[in-house]
């Protein structure tokens, strides 16, 4: 039974959140001028930048007539973690994350609209405090919207874990670094909440199948909550009516 101490007797988590509470999300679209779309997203202490280039003509080796090729790169700043990283990208973890990003975002993009083209999505983790992948997906969605790329739905990612309180299972939403390190199960879901479908699901550690449904539904709830936050950010940004990109072109 992993992590019985993840919840206090009052039902609060290590960082004082309730089990169904997200960390505070702050985000901004259009932070940079050079990329076609960019976004910055803070989820608690996790800070992520995303940039989108494209759609542009695909490299010959990658070109596909069926639809657009989505090219993702996930890199982590060397100073982002507690212990210094030696390489920002190219290690196994980043490559795996790049593949997961691609899977989640390809599901959201209307790929059939741009055959023989390519979209580059670059995610840079500036500060990692748990859930960097989820923050990366959320930031990349905002950057795609900023770039004006047609999406089927918002792609939102959220993680969930499990704790015990008074003998009852209690799923935890949006797992932070401390809870991740405690060694409990971490279920990461990237979903298109609008359509209710799941684009990517990944689970580490073990979880009894009896509890899978509650944890998954908690994670899906998180995705829906995040979608509302992202949607509001997009609407606010559009209401403001300009980005840094526009200033330069004037």
């Amino acid at each position: 039974m992993p992590g019985p101490d993840l919840l206090s007797s009052q039902g609060l988590r290590l960082d004082g959140r309730r089990p169904n509470e997200l960390r505070r999300i702050k985000c901004k679209l259009g932070v940079f001028t050079q990329p076609d779309g960019s976004a910055y997203l803070e989820q608690g202490n996790t800070k992520v930048l995303a940039a989108v280039y494209g759609p542009h003509q695909a490299a010959k080796s990658k070109s596909s007539t069926d639809g657009v090729v989505v090219n993702c790169q996930y890199s982590t700043a060397t100073f982002s973690t507690g212990e210094r990283k030696n390489r920002p990208r190219g290690d196994r973890k980043s490559q795996e994350m790049s593949m997961h990003l691609r899977q989640a975002l390809t599901a959201a993009i209307k790929t059939e609209l741009y055959p023989r083209s390519q979209i580059d999505i670059y995610v840079e983790v500036l500060q990692a405090d748990g859930g960097a992948y989820c923050a990366g997906v959320n930031a990349a969605t905002l950057a795609l919207i900023d770039a004006g790329i047609p999406l089927r739905a918002y792609a939102c990612a959220c993680s969930a874990s499990m704790a015990w309180r008074a003998g009852q299972p209690e799923p935890l939403l949006d797992v932070g670094h401390v809870e991740e390190a405690a060694g409990g199960v971490v279920l990461t879901v990237a979903a298109l909440p609008n359509t209710g479908s799941i684009a990517l699901l990944e689970m580490s550690h073990r979880l009894h199948m009896d509890y899978f449904d509650v944890v998954l539904s908690r994670a899906m709830q998180g995705c829906r909550d995040i979608e509302i936050i992202l949607d509001r950010a997009v609407r606010d940004h559009l209401a403001e009516g300009w980005t840094k990109q526009d200033i330069v072109t004037i």
Binding site: A50, D120, Y122, E124
Partner: peptide
């Protein structure tokens, strides 16, 4: 000193 050119700056910086 360690410099990392993020691909956010330009797609040319992707990978190595």
């Amino acid at each position: 000193f360690f410099v990392d050119c993020s691909a956010n700056a330009t797609p040319e910086f992707e990978g190595r």
